[in-house]
Design a protein around this nucleic acid. Structure first.
Lengths: 158, 158
DNA sequence: AAGGGTAGTCAAGTTTCTTGACTAATAGGT
DNA sequence: ACCTATTAGTCAAGAAACTTGACTACCCTT
């Protein structure tokens, strides 16, 4: 009879995928919490990700779709929600009557400033703990993973 | 009139949180795809995360809840699903008539073997690309982030 | 002007995770 | 033994973040 011993009783799994998931989740929790504390209670993980892809002068919705690796309908629904919150607005594109530019409202720009500040604060916290060298290595490694494994993500299908 | 120039037209945002999210997502995509190819088409991101927390000899549901940082109902539903797929089963705990041990079925153990292999394959791919040194640095940095920022996660409420 | 690809919308459904309300068993103090 | 608080788990309902499928409107090429 085998002794009933839980072989990962201590601290959970240990493969790199789990660590990535965990770290990502914790970063987002931190970020959303800090944004909430700064008065932007509407912020969520998914919205933060979307907003990160929108430039200061706006970004065509089609480009958001191409970049984010999720379906165009998902992007649309996220934008719908943020439009409803008064953070984003859709303006017609000058060249193409089909296209819309997703841009920040004044309220959105205020949130953007706070978000940028908070991102830097979190990164600074990481830097203090890991040290400049290890943080740089982390960023470099993640950059490779995003580029190499993610480069082939062909905007999905329709 | 400002020139309409999208300031992140090239490759998206660049803060560490986004990189973590991206890397995590790509790992999971790889893993789920490889598991699907190995005949385990029922595998999803969330299920992979849950299964990673279950020891070879089973793990009490309450411990899963404490570890995973999600609500007990979420764990329950995930387990329900995997029980329905024939991957997991709930056996009564010997000491405590309330408790249930979540354990693998034979089918679940087969999946576990494939999962372990695939995790190693993905990690090996990362190792070839990043080199041993950079991969170690990545793992060390992620370990810190999980431990330090995540240690205070008090099993939520509920 | 015709046909094919692109930009976006509408509708409906799935997965994953949430809060709230509940039952049953255990643990501790009196 | 008895009451109470805590712990383990379930049931029900719902929100968030996605998905596929079907559609319209526009652009570009031939």
């Amino acid at each position: 009879m085998v002794k009933v011993l839980d072989d990962n009783a201590d601290d959970g799994p240990d493969h790199i995928g789990w660590r990535l998931w965990q770290a990502s989740r914790l970063w987002q929790e931190d970020f959303v919490a800090a944004m909430g504390a700064a008065g932007h209670g509407w912020m969520t993980d998914a919205r933060a990700t979307l907003l990160g892809h929108i430039g200061r002068n706006g970004t065509p919705q089609s480009r958001l779709i191409a970049r984010m690796g999720i379906s165009k309908q998902a992007v649309q629904q996220l934008v719908d929600g943020l439009e409803g919150e008064g953070i984003l607005c859709r303006v017609p594109a000058p060249n193409d009557k089909r296209a819309r530019i997703i841009a920040h409202t004044p309220k959105g720009r205020a949130a953007l400033r706070d978000a940028d500040r908070i991102k830097l604060e979190i990164e600074e916290r990481y830097r203090r703990a890991l040290g400049e060298e290890q943080l740089s290595a982390l960023k470099a490694a993640l950059a490779w993973l995003s580029r190499e494994t993610g480069g082939k993500n062909p905007a999905r299908r329709g």
